[in-house]
Amino acid sequence: MRRFGYSRPDDVGEAIAQERRFPEAKFLGGGTNLVDLMKMGVEKPAHLVDITRLPLTQIEERGNVIRIGALTRNSEVAAHPLVLAKCPVLSEAILAGASPQIRNMATTGGNLLQRTRCFYFYDPSYAECNKRVPGSGCAAIQGYNRIHAILGGSDHCIATYPGDMAIALSALGASIVVQGPRGERTISLDRFYRLPGATPHIENDLKPDELITSIEVPTPTVTGSHYLKVRDRNSYAFALVSVAALVDLAPDKHIRQARFALGGVAPKPWRVPEAEEALVNRPATEAVFREAAEIAVRGAKPHRYNGFKVELAKRAVVRALTTASQRG
């Protein structure tokens, strides 16, 4: 691992100032992804600003919004009474990810910024990766692309966003609060992540000297929710396909409102407003859910080894919406 400098500021302003002061600096949260990428030689920061002692660990309710401090550990968020009571789909998604040890370490802000697990990105012995080395090509498009994107990819990159928590946050309509030298701003999670286009190395809207300080989750008015994760083994594996679904049913079982987002299929949490609109005022039946699922994967572009994801995604949407409808 390349040598690096280290500092551990105790307030947010000083953390941002240090990130700007030291060349090639990065913020260090739980380190579960960054330290691994440094061992692999994918990330080579010259300085780490350890932000884990900053006072950003509150979870609190303000009106209809749950505000989660960016340095709250994943396990704390998943077990928090407010989260379990008001948006259990977030707990479900977090608990579907990684392992208890990793969830004890990983921070909320860091989880949002985790990098893709595309084999070709993660291993620098592959020369071609536009995300790792812009302009070098993409080894996945003609390579072993079983885990790769069917939606939202480009000729430059077909890597998926690997996380679970952000899929639930997308369905919940969450926003990200960031602090930088120019002050604070709030970005909706769906606009935070970018599609790869010709610049897959730019994954989100965050500037290098900006720090995520909290996540704001509007508490949903729904009758039921579910996070469904489909993977190669039952636990401690990344999603092939996942779906976070929230359904609000009227007493006569018609759908008042429904929201869902897909994971494992695209470079960002994949949410299709037209698919959600197709559910409004319709009965909560398998046929109706299937219609929405067809709309959700419209334009899917499978590659040699991941064609199975198209049908798997549709069936996962139907099952997640069905389970969410039966809850509550």
């Binding site: 380190g31 579960t32 330290v35 004890n104 370490m105």
Partner: peptide, 11 residues
């Protein structure tokens, strides 16, 4: 419980 392989000792 944490993973000591992904924990920098200094932290």
């Amino acid at each position: 419980r944490v993973l000591s392989c992904l924990t920098l000792a200094i932290t």
